[in-house]
Amino acid sequence: MLSRTAENLFWMARNMERAENTARMLDVSFRMSLLPSSRDKQAQFEPILSIAPGDGRFDELYGMLSHENIIRYVALDPENAGSICSLIKNARENARAQRSAISSEAWERLNSTWLQVQNLDYEGLMRWGYRDFFDWVKERSHLFRGVVFGTMLHDDGFRFIRLGTFIERADNTARILDVKYHVLLPDTEQVGGVVDYYQWGALLRSVGAFRAYRRVYHDTVYPWRIAELLILREDMPRSLHHCYEVVIHTLDELAGKKQLECRRIAGQTYAQLRYGRIDSVFKEGLHEFLTDFIARNNALGVQLQEDFLMRPLAMAGAA
């Protein structure tokens, strides 16, 4: 497969996964802001600026910090390369460049998704409804992945789509979990309270894991169990362990018998997740563990560029 084709498919998948993850974060923040215990609506949205992808130009573009401005910037702003609309546009452009490498159904899903948001402004979003829009973005991402899985040959092109999806998903899960500990609840006196329970529940909902938690633990929401579910559980679709199990399997199919550096980096991280224990993670420090994971995940993305793709990561991410 040409490296240009692999690159476009890889970033097509990453951009759609980012759009979905960003919609999930905005959706949960909006739901939390409606709770009677939430006195400061802005405080529910502010952490998103630390998690969601973006160019760090919020202060330059908006100045005043408010939940309306955060939603404009993170969901709609064409000046923000990490906004939902920009990500959908980028995914569509990457797909357009490789229409012969994907199924016509996959192209049609992406193209129609972009056509529905290309002229969307804040007033249009208000008429649409925050929750309805965020749910729509999630549904379109699910639909796109389902169409890809069900209509494309499971060849190398499909494998690069899988790599993009799960590397991006792992990054998002790690960032959400890290910010929950170090931004959402900086005051340790709040831990264990009613508000704390709702915020931990919101974290689970932001990664679609609330019911999974209930099925696994049959108990109230505890931070260390959430960390275990989202880091070490192999059967949790958005856990770091599950993401890297898919990444390892996909790289083995792509590399064959070649000894590639990206496979070594991924294998190191996978071994840590497969054989790790949550008490060891907390002993090391959850923040330190997640920071190290994010760095390793980024290093894997850079190495994939060198081993398979065409351009440096920063340039590809802006495509």
Rank of each mutant, 00 (worst) to 15 (best):
P53W: 12
F58G: 14
D77F: 05
Y62D: 14
P47T: 07
G54N: 03
D55P: 00
S50Q: 09
F58A: 14
M64K: 13
P47L: 04
V74K: 04
D59M: 11
Q44H: 14
Q44L: 09
G82V: 08
E46K: 15
I84C: 00
P47C: 12
M64Y: 11
L49F: 03
V74C: 02
H67C: 05
D77K: 09
P78F: 00
G82P: 03
G56A: 03
L76Y: 00
E60R: 12
Y62I: 13
S66M: 11
I88H: 07
P53S: 05
S86C: 08
F58H: 07
G56T: 00
D59K: 15
A52S: 10
N69G: 06
L49T: 06
E79D: 12
F45E: 06
I51G: 06
I88D: 06
A52I: 00
R57V: 00
I84A: 00
E68P: 03
M64Q: 11
F45H: 02
R57L: 08
P53C: 04
S83P: 14
N80D: 13
K89R: 14
A75K: 05
E60D: 15
D55S: 08
A52E: 01
F58T: 14
L65V: 15
N69T: 08
L87M: 15
L76H: 08
D55K: 05
S83M: 14
M64P: 02
P47K: 08
V74S: 04
L49H: 02
G54D: 03
D77H: 06
E79H: 10
I84P: 02
F45D: 02
I70E: 04
C85H: 02
M64A: 06
Y73S: 10
S50L: 12
F58N: 12
D77N: 08
Y62R: 12
R72L: 11
I84L: 01
R72Y: 01
S66W: 00
K89N: 13
Y73M: 10
E79T: 09
L65C: 12
A52K: 01
C85K: 04
I51E: 08
I48W: 05
S50D: 15
L61D: 06
L61I: 09
S50R: 05
I71H: 05
M64L: 13
G63V: 08
R72K: 13
Q44G: 07
N69F: 06
A52P: 05
S66D: 14
Q44M: 15
L76F: 01
L65E: 03
L61N: 09
Y62Q: 13
Y62P: 15
D77L: 02
C85Q: 03
E79I: 13
G63F: 05
N80M: 10
L87K: 10
F58M: 13
I71Y: 02
G82K: 05
E46M: 11
Q44K: 15
A75H: 02
P47R: 11
Q44W: 15
S50T: 09
C85S: 05
D55Q: 05
P78Q: 04
F58E: 11
R72I: 09
